[in-house]
Design a protein around this nucleic acid. Structure first.
Length: 152
DNA sequence: CGTTTGACTACGC
DNA sequence: CGCGTAGCCAAAC
């Protein structure tokens, strides 16, 4: 996979801070979280675009070594709307159970509809205070007209 | 010690 | 759409 960020401790702290902002009933993705963190000094933006999501994954992998009770780790899934933990593992089942308990629904392919349950990111002020960037949207505003009608 | 293995995503078929 | 791959390295085996 990939190298660690220049300052893993700091990077992880930022990731966990952001994850703590995700409210129940919605989900974020590794990529969306990475999109809120400026590429660290010394890392080219094009490299960060590729490495960031992986680093977020590593940060999530280390939550158990941090403060699991304080971090809603279950609300971070992959860009396909799926759970990235090993299929069938206890951890994966736990994540799905936690999400379903919060009202997040999985389809027949075990995926979450990000247009419906995707997070819009933290409050803009919260981000600005920390020098973070607006998140990439998981719920593209320009859907087909019929889709918009359906959602209404 | 050499190999395998990752809580990823964008991109090209 | 789904599938394979690049990117590229520190740990765990």
């Amino acid at each position: 996979m990939q190298a660690f960020p220049p300052d893993p401790v700091r990077f992880n702290r930022i990731v966990w801070d952001i994850v703590r902002q995700i409210p129940p009933g919605v989900v974020s993705t590794y990529g969306q979280i990475a999109s809120m963190i400026p590429s660290p000094a010394g890392v080219a933006p094009e490299d960060y675009a590729r490495l960031g999501p992986v680093w977020v994954g590593k940060a999530m992998n280390q939550v158990s070594a941090a403060d699991p009770a304080d971090i809603p780790w279950q609300r971070v899934i992959n860009s396909q709307g799926g759970i990235s933990l090993p299929e069938g593992s206890r951890a994966a089942r736990e994540q799905r159970a936690r999400l379903e308990r919060e009202g997040v629904m999985f389809d027949a392919r075990d995926r979450v509809d990000l247009r419906r349950f995707g997070w819009d990111g933290p409050d803009a002020g919260w981000l600005a205070d920390r020098g973070l960037l607006p998140p990439r949207s998981l719920r593209p505003p320009s859907e087909s007209a019929s889709e918009q009608m359906r959602l209404l």
